[in-house]
């Protein structure tokens, strides 16, 4: 088994699990998530309301696709975009000196948006990009589907 394949698989499952966990922690806490998003002062309230309901399920779904290795390349590219967007939103809050709460890990996460969070999101974006480029790795449904 090539070492690169093994690395992609580990990264894919770990990143998928992270998204499933962060998404699950936000489900049922739309008010807190909406407040966290509003704190960034980037989106209109009319967009924030449905986003606060949809985003947690979107994260869980994306994480599940990565863990299963289903449409891995597309899912990993979407994850890359999501992490870049999260990082950009946090960076904009830091640059504008807005003490926004990250809200990354659900309602109990009161970490304030700062540069380490930007760096963390960018590292996750790089990992997601690496997964997309090396997809799907082993133990992926994509392999089975490609064979059939």
């Amino acid at each position: 088994m090539p070492f690169r394949e093994l690395l992609v698989t580990i990264a894919r499952i770990a990143l998928g699990a992270l998204l499933v966990v962060t998404g699950s922690l936000k489900i049922g806490h739309a008010n807190e998530l909406a407040a966290a998003i509003a704190g960034f002062r980037l989106l209109h309230p009319d967009i924030i309301e449905p986003l606060a309901l949809i985003l947690p399920f979107g994260e869980v779904l994306l994480g599940a696709y990565l863990m299963l290795g289903l449409f891995t390349r597309v899912a990993a590219f979407v994850a890359t975009g999501a992490f870049v967007l999260y990082g950009a939103a946090i960076a904009s809050a830091v640059l504008r000196h807005i003490p926004a709460n990250c809200g990354c890990f659900g309602p109990n996460d009161q970490a304030v948006a700062d540069w380490p969070h930007v760096a963390f999101d960018l590292v996750l974006a790089v990992i997601a990009l690496a997964i997309a480029l090396g997809a799907p790795g082993i133990l992926a449904l994509d392999r089975r589907l490609n064979r059939s």
């Binding site: 739309a30 407040a35 509003a38 960034f40 009319d46 309301e49 449905p50 986003l51």
Partner: peptide, 24 residues
């Protein structure tokens, strides 16, 4: 998922969610 989310917000407006969505 997107359509249901948007329709749910329109059909069941929540004052709490509306308040939370406005930046203080």
């Amino acid at each position: 998922l997107v359509v249901v989310g948007v329709i749910y917000v329109k059909l069941h407006p929540s004052a709490q969610l509306q308040n939370a969505s406005v930046a203080p």
